[in-house]
Structure formats: structure tokens, C-alpha cells
């Protein structure tokens, strides 16, 4: 009959071995789960910059890091390419009030690498994290709510609240018609070929209608 001591020792050792075994297995599976084939030189450069500027002590990524600034795991999926590029160049313009991100005066190719990195991260299989908010349906009804939910206010302001990067929309209805606004949402470049406004074509038709009604009603 082995003593309690021996049993404890053996169990502990066994658990350490099991842990190493699972580590080997996890590392093998990580390749596919993180799309390692898409880890291009640009993405890796983006990770290097992310570390160089110590972004991770303000932001969480994969939920790890500082809790001072938004988690960026899904930023690429939510904000899109154009928005991120614009934001990283001049963060203060997108969010004129509130907590600030410093301007790192990044060169264009640095911005490109960081965005490529964020794109890669957004595709990592995170077992469904972060969960889709259960109350989000609320934000989908009513044009004003779509406006906030789609973060139009990071560029535009209405009645003094919002960004300064794009025209103030407080009186949009007295400037443009609903049809024109819908066209702007579907394809901003149809009105201005070098527009930096992202396209919102992918929004559900109902949401676009509500949004356009709302803006056209702002006289």
C-alpha cells in the first residue's frame, strides 16, 4: 500500500505530464485555429509594432492586457479597414471627447501592418468570444440607435456630440434627400471618389431605411 505521500507525488507528476501532452496537442491545433498560413511578413510586422508601442497596456487583445481602452480582438470585423486606417492616423479626430489614445504619428506602412495584424487577430477562432450581446436587438431599432450602433458618431456629430472628421449631420435633412442619403450609405464613393467614409451596403435594408429616414428628418 503506497503512502499518501507517494500517491500525492505521483498524481502531481502525472498532471504535469498530462499538461505537457495537452500543450503539444494545442500547439499542433493552433496552426489551423489561427490560420497560421495568413501570418504574412506584414502581419508579423504589425505584431512587432503593437508590442513596440506597448498598445497592450491600454488595450486588451484576446481579452488580455490593460482595461483602459476597448478590446481590439474584433475591431477589424466591427470597424472595417478604412475606419481603422483613418483612426490610427489621427485617433483624436474620431473621438474628439472622452478618453484619449495618443497619436503615435505612424507612417502609412506602419498603419498598414497594424491593420493587417488586427485583421489576422479578428479571424482567430476564439470559441465564440466575445459573446454577442443579448440586448443588442434594442440598438437595431430606430434610426438614431442604428446611428450609434454603427458608430457613425466617431466621424460625424449631431447636436454637438460626435467626431469632427466628417460633416456635422444635425441638419442633414435640409441639405439632402432620403434617396441621396441612401446612396451615400451604399456607396460613399459615388458622391466623392476619394471618400474615406466606409460603405454600409452590408447593413440590413430595414436598418438602412430607418437610418435614412432619421437623417432626412433632421432639418
Amino acid at each position: 500500500m503506497p503512502s499518501t505521500r507517494t500517491i500525492l507525488w505521483a498524481a502531481t507528476l502525472l498532471s504535469a505530464l498530462a499538461f505537457l501532452g495537452m500543450t503539444v496537442d494545442s500547439l499542433r491545433k493552433l496552426g489551423a485555429r489561427t490560420h497560421e498560413e495568413r501570418l504574412s511578413a506584414e502581419v508579423i510586422e504589425g505584431k512587432r509594432l503593437w508590442q513596440h508601442y506597448d498598445c497592450n497596456d491600454c488595450h486588451t487583445i484576446l481579452g488580455i492586457g490593460g482595461y483602459y481602452a476597448p478590446d481590439v480582438t474584433k475591431s477589424y470585423a466591427i470597424r472595417g479597414d478604412a475606419w481603422l486606417r483613418q483612426f490610427l492616423k489621427e485617433p483624436a479626430k474620431m473621438y474628439p471627447a472622452g478618453r484619449q489614445m495618443p497619436n503615435f504619428h505612424l507612417a502609412d506602412e506602419q498603419v498598414g501592418s497594424l491593420v493587417a495584424y488586427l485583421e489576422w487577430v479578428s479571424e482567430v477562432d476564439t470559441n465564440g468570444w466575445p459573446p454577442a450581446p443579448e440586448g443588442v436587438a434594442r440598438a437595431e431599432s430606430g434610426g438614431a440607435k442604428v446611428f450609434l450602433a454603427q458608430h457613425c458618431n466617431t466621424c460625424h456629430s449631431i447636436q454637438g456630440s460626435g467626431g469632427t472628421l466628417a460633416p456635422d449631420l444635425s441638419h442633414e435633412g435640409s441639405r439632402q434627400t432620403k434617396e441621396w442619403i441612401l446612396a451615400q450609405l451604399n456607396d460613399p464613393r459615388s458622391h466623392k471618389p476619394d471618400s474615406i467614409m466606409p460603405s454600409f451596403k452590408q447593413l440590413p435594408e430595414a436598418a438602412k431605411q430607418e437610418l435614412a429616414d432619421y437623417l432626412a428628418g433632421l432639418k
Binding site: 502531481t12 498532471s15 504535469a16 499538461f19 496537442d25 494545442s26 485555429r33 484576446l62 481579452g63 476564439t126
Partner: peptide, 22 residues
Amino acid sequence: CLVLLTGIIGTGHHYYWIGTPH
């Protein structure tokens, strides 16, 4: 012994959402 027995594999509570297997 119990610290190690629970804590080593317990590292898994940080492997839920970082790309590691389910």
C-alpha cells in the same frame, strides 16, 4: 502537492478564448 496538482492544468482557465482548442 495540491497547489501543483490543481494549478498546472488549472492554467487552462486562461486557454478558453485565446485560440486554443475547446
